[in-house]
């Protein structure tokens, strides 16, 4: 049991911080520009594919720097020559634009790399066991993922709270027009934040694509979870995004490792013997294992949060 808890905790921390890399950019872009970017997870996918391609040429380590850079530049260009033009037609147009962009990126990826996934591997220099605890071993690569994502979190926090650019971004979260009227180039800030947010998603792709999977469906898969994260955390709240990323990751990881059903519980208590003879859908429901509910749990949480606290856990504007 202690073993299960320890490793589930570690794994969900790794996965949660990966989710945070994605959700932090998305939530910043949303609260600053009012754009819910459906293509955000597509930048995660581009990050993984570009990293795969670059690593076949020059290895993983250069790819770790190059891929997020490329994704960031693509993101900035999308803002400058796409979104900014569409902005005048209103929010719905912007939403449709990012929606279309997600499809275009997926089709492009299929055209270039094919419909089946690519063999993007963990670098051999990180392919060893960091430590053994009880009977389970913890791979070094997961620790590496954690180091990268936590460092990025710290840098992001520092930039937002301690630098002038961060101050301007924070101000633009609440009154972008006023920031412009004070003489700050808000369109440039938008481009910076969109490019930066895309680059963060790119980093997630580089370090997550090889640990999870690199295939054309990866964007849609993670994309929906990331939306759940920012709604649960509260739109525009960086702290909320962090908390929700970790929370959802804990939920999923623990559920998957929990191989019991309601039936087992009832059986163990041995109180309601008649239940075991119940027939039909009730019986089926009783036999669903907690592990099988793993994929549904985030959405359950989403619905719950929307009903109980529509603003999200920390749905005040980030300060």
């Amino acid at each position: 049991m202690l073993e299960f808890v320890t490793f589930s905790l570690l794994n969900s921390l790794v996965y949660g911080m990966l989710l945070f890399l994605l959700s932090s950019g998305l939530t910043l872009i949303f609260s600053m520009m009012g754009v819910l970017n459906f293509a955000h997870a597509s930048f995660y996918m581009i990050g993984a594919y570009v990293a795969y391609q670059v690593s076949t040429w020059v290895g993983f380590w250069p790819a770790l720097l190059i891929a997020p850079g490329i994704v960031g530049i693509i993101g900035a260009l999308v803002e400058r020559y796409g979104l900014r033009k569409v902005h005048q037609y209103g929010q719905l147009a912007e939403l449709l634009f990012t929606f279309g962009l997600a499809f275009i990126i997926e089709e492009l990826v299929i055209m270039i790399w094919g419909r089946v996934g690519v063999d993007y591997k963990i670098p051999s220099s990180l392919e060893f066991t960091l430590f053994d605890l009880f009977d389970t071993s913890f791979p070094a690569y997961k620790a590496f993922m954690l180091v990268i994502s936590v460092s990025i979190f710290l840098v992001l926090y520092y930039v937002l709270v301690r630098t002038r650019v961060g101050l301007i971004i924070q101000a633009a979260l609440s009154h972008p027009e006023m920031v412009g009227a004070l003489g700050h180039d808000v369109p440039k800030m938008f481009m910076l934040v969109f490019g930066g947010g895309s680059a963060l998603a790119g980093v997630a792709g580089v370090i997550g694509g090889n640990a999870l999977i690199t295939e054309p469906a990866m964007a849609a898969q993670l994309g929906t979870i990331v939306f759940v994260v920012i709604v649960v955390g509260g739109m525009g709240s960086l702290t909320g995004a962090l908390v929700a990323s970790l929370l959802i990751s804990f939920l999923q990881t623990f559920a998957i490792g929990f191989d019991y059903s309601l039936y087992d519980l009832v059986n163990a208590m041995d109180t309601w013997p008649f239940l075991s003879e119940a027939a039909g859908p009730w019986n089926d429901l009783l036999h669903v294992k907690v592990a099988q509910t793993g994929p549904v749990l985030p959405y359950l949480l989403l619905v719950l949060v929307l009903v109980v606290r529509p603003k999200g856990l920390m749905g005040v504007r980030e300060t």
């Binding site: 924070q170 101000a171 609440s174 009154h175 027009e177 006023m178 504007r317 980030e318 300060t319």
Partner: peptide, 11 residues
């Protein structure tokens, strides 16, 4: 200086 003053609330 706008009518609503537009103070940045968290700063």
């Amino acid at each position: 200086v706008p009518e609503d003053r537009s103070i940045f609330p968290g700063l």
